[in-house]
């Protein structure tokens, strides 16, 4: 009996299925990089032409302005929780003064960018995938192509740029709210002394840390934009397919953020050591 494509002996079926999903996975991965390269390639063009600014500003509003409140709220809660967590230990050890420095350091360099990224992935990534996925399953992306408009330039690039450029600004908002939130809990709930709080924060948290946080969030924003647009462009299977694509897009963005964070931390530590040597919080 001859086995043609699509017909596999039952014993071999699991192996064929595994092979199938590996090839599909690899080809999607390869396709993602081609898509990303094209999206990035159109970026200078989009940034340089006044006609495309309107498209980008619309996205900037949807992605940036509308996300600001929820991101600021996230930042504030992170700062507040860290003070609640740390107060006991720091005050019994007699270091309550330094709590602000530690909290703000973690917020600026690590928790601010990562949690803002995760929040953005949920709020914006899902919405972008849903929007583009719906456009794909209702043939709107095909229609763009038949009208001579390049869908990647027209749809993906403005969204990617908005995510890339606005994520650091949103992160800055989150950081700021984190600092204020932690100070409120520190000063008004635990009755800590405000002056050393701000003093040690200022001397410990360097521009370098804020810069690192913003650089990270730029990577996170770019990744969210690319992943969710790519996912939208490849959505099939009607309304249900759109829903599944959104979930997948969020999960993949989330993992990408964590993986990027690890890599960027390693790089940052190396670079910092090279430039300034070791440093200590105390």
């Amino acid at each position: 009996m001859a086995y043609t494509a699509g017909r596999v002996h039952p014993i071999l079926a699991p192996i064929a299925a595994l092979g199938g999903s590996v090839t599909r996975g690899l080809s999607t991965f390869g396709d993602f990089w081609v898509f990303s390269a094209q999206t990035a390639m159109y970026s200078p063009l989009e940034l340089g032409s006044p006609r495309s600014w309107r498209r980008m500003l619309q996205q900037a509003y949807a992605i940036g302005t509308r996300s600001a409140p929820v991101l600021m709220l996230t930042g504030a809660f992170v700062g507040m929780v860290l003070v609640v967590q740390g107060w006991e230990q720091f005050s019994t050890a007699g270091f309550a003064d330094r709590l602000g420095a530690v909290v703000n350091m973690s917020v600026a360099a690590e928790l601010g960018p990562v949690l803002a990224g995760v929040m953005l992935a949920g709020r914006v990534g899902g919405a972008l995938t849903a929007e583009l996925g719906t456009m794909n399953v209702t043939e709107q992306i095909l229609a763009l192509r038949t009208m001579g408009a390049e869908p990647i330039r027209f749809l993906a690039t403005p969204r990617f740029l908005a995510c890339l450029l606005l994520a650091p600004i949103l992160t800055l908002y989150a950081d700021l709210m984190g600092t204020i939130g932690s100070w409120i809990i520190y000063a008004f709930v635990y009755g800590g002394d405000s002056e050393p709080y701000w003093f040690f924060t200022r001397t410990t948290v360097e521009m370098w840390d804020v810069g690192v946080g913003m650089t990270k969030s730029m990577f996170f924003g770019g990744a969210i934009g690319l992943i969710s647009c790519h996912m939208g462009f490849h959505t099939t299977g009607g309304a249900q397919g759109v829903g599944e694509a959104c979930t997948r897009s969020f999960v993949i963005s989330f993992i990408a953020i964590l993986a990027l964070d690890l890599v960027l931390n390693l790089v940052n530590n190396g670079v910092y050591k090279m430039l300034f040597g070791n440093r200590s919080l105390f």
């Binding site: 456009m135 209702t138 043939e139 709107q140 038949t146």
Partner: peptide
């Protein structure tokens, strides 16, 4: 393909109006 596509109009089965 662009020059050819400019000479052709396509009415899609799902209409494909831009939302």
């Amino acid at each position: 393909l662009t020059p050819i596509r400019r000479r052709v109009s396509f009415v899609f089965q799902l209409n494909a109006l831009f939302d």
